[in-house]
Computed example of a mutant assay.
Amino acid sequence: MSFTPTRLPDRVKASLWAGSLGALVVGAAMLGVSLSSPALAENIRGAATGPTTAPGFSHPEQYIHLKDVKPADNMYPVIQHHEQDKAAQAKLASLAAKTGKKPNIMIFLLDDVGWGDPGFNGGGVAVGNATPNMDRLANEGLLLTSAYSLENTLIIFTSDNGPECEIPPHGRTPFRGCKGSSWEGGVRVPTFVYWKGMIAPRKSDGLFDLADILPTALDLAGVPGAKLAELFPKSTYIDGVDQASFLIADDGLSARRSRIYTLNQYYSAIRIDEFKGVATGEIENGVVQKGFPGGFSGPVFTDTGGAIVFNLYTNPQEDVSIGIRHIPMAVLLQYPPQFKISASCPTILRSTTSSPRSKKG
């Protein structure tokens, strides 16, 4: 399937300021201040009683000030970690020399599992549904909090989306919204990756999209990075990111700088670091007022009165917008895929027009 790039209207560009999972070109600008005054230049970091010797705190997975790079023209841009990639490839080469073959990959894709359902995310026995086996594997592998023993086998445990909340009983999520919406509760899923002897136990809030599974698996099969583009026509856009070194390297960092959210035929939001800029979203309780309707029964807003930005670290419930006070600097230039889903005709029609409101099939 191929997509023709579709330019978003100025209304959407103006309302977008930051965010997360198509082609994306994101530019970031940082405001620099020149310290020309000698007094200011000598103001060493520290407390009122004098300078400090503390090294400060590093945020290695903060990417808003960094430029991501496309491995190929038809591939999603990535944050490059050259030394990390070398370390991961060395571990893979050592494993290949030991086993004489490529690894197996096993994916457990569950349906409508809430982020808070498994025990490793706070559910399990605490909510009357113990999950001892998956908890054990999660605790021995890499637990992904933003995404999301067999020999020579990579195990990926995840869900296709958040819980379905239209009709109880339903799954649990600490986030806003459910399946069918682009709020975090609808798209953030419980995920862990396990590989005996290859992945050290740890947790990470680095971005990981299920679209990343394809390029990551191909890397493990011997087709890393830009080589993946050689397997597809140039008209096919690869929106996944190769995350092999993120998973395998010790203390590996995510290669994904941003993630696009969609809602039906609309571009909905973008996440970069902890910031999520929203242009389109579902209005909960807009139609059904009794209880929480989940993600399918609400109307959708496509216009806003100003910038809507959420800090997902300090406000994961997405109920306090900081768009007017704290504007992360990012500009969405182009986003190719545009879909139209009709209730009367479930066929997904590909749009090649310039407006997300238009459709063409």
Rank of each mutant, 00 (worst) to 15 (best):
M1V: 11
F3T: 12
T4K: 15
T4V: 14
D10K: 15
R11T: 13
K13V: 01
A18Q: 06
A23D: 13
L24P: 02
A29T: 15
S36V: 06
L40E: 12
R45A: 09
A48H: 08
F57T: 13
S58R: 13
S58Y: 01
I64R: 15
D68W: 10
A72V: 09
D73T: 13
M75P: 10
V78P: 02
I79G: 04
Q80H: 01
Q84T: 11
S94F: 02
K102D: 03
I105W: 05
I107W: 14
I107C: 14
F108N: 04
L110G: 05
V113G: 02
G114S: 03
G114C: 04
G114M: 03
G116Y: 03
G116P: 01
P118G: 03
F120Y: 15
N121H: 14
G124E: 02
V125F: 07
V127Q: 12
N129F: 06
L137G: 08
A138Q: 08
A138E: 10
G141S: 12
A147R: 04
S149K: 11
L150T: 07
L150R: 12
L154V: 09
I156M: 12
I156E: 03
F157N: 04
T158S: 12
S159W: 05
S159H: 08
D160Y: 00
N161L: 00
E164F: 14
E164D: 14
C165S: 14
I167R: 13
P168D: 08
P169F: 08
P169L: 10
G171V: 03
R176H: 12
S181A: 12
G185I: 06
G185A: 07
R188Y: 04
V189C: 06
T191Y: 00
V193H: 08
Y194I: 02
K196V: 00
I199K: 07
D205V: 00
A211N: 13
P215D: 04
P215Y: 01
V223C: 07
K227W: 00
E230R: 14
F232V: 07
K234S: 15
S235H: 07
S235G: 08
Y237T: 03
V241L: 03
I248V: 13
A249F: 10
G252P: 08
L253E: 08
L253S: 11
R259T: 06
L263V: 01
Y266N: 11
Y267H: 09
S268Y: 02
S268D: 05
S268I: 01
A269R: 08
I272H: 05
D273P: 12
D273W: 05
G277S: 11
V278F: 03
E282A: 09
E284W: 06
G286R: 01
Q289R: 12
G291V: 01
D303M: 09
N311T: 05
Q317E: 13
D319Q: 13
G323P: 09
H326M: 12
H326E: 15
A330Y: 01
P336L: 05
P336T: 07
P337H: 00
P337W: 00
I341T: 04
C345S: 14
R350G: 10
S351L: 04
T352R: 11
S354L: 09
S354Y: 03
S354A: 13
S355G: 00
R357C: 02
K359D: 09
G361Q: 03
G361S: 07
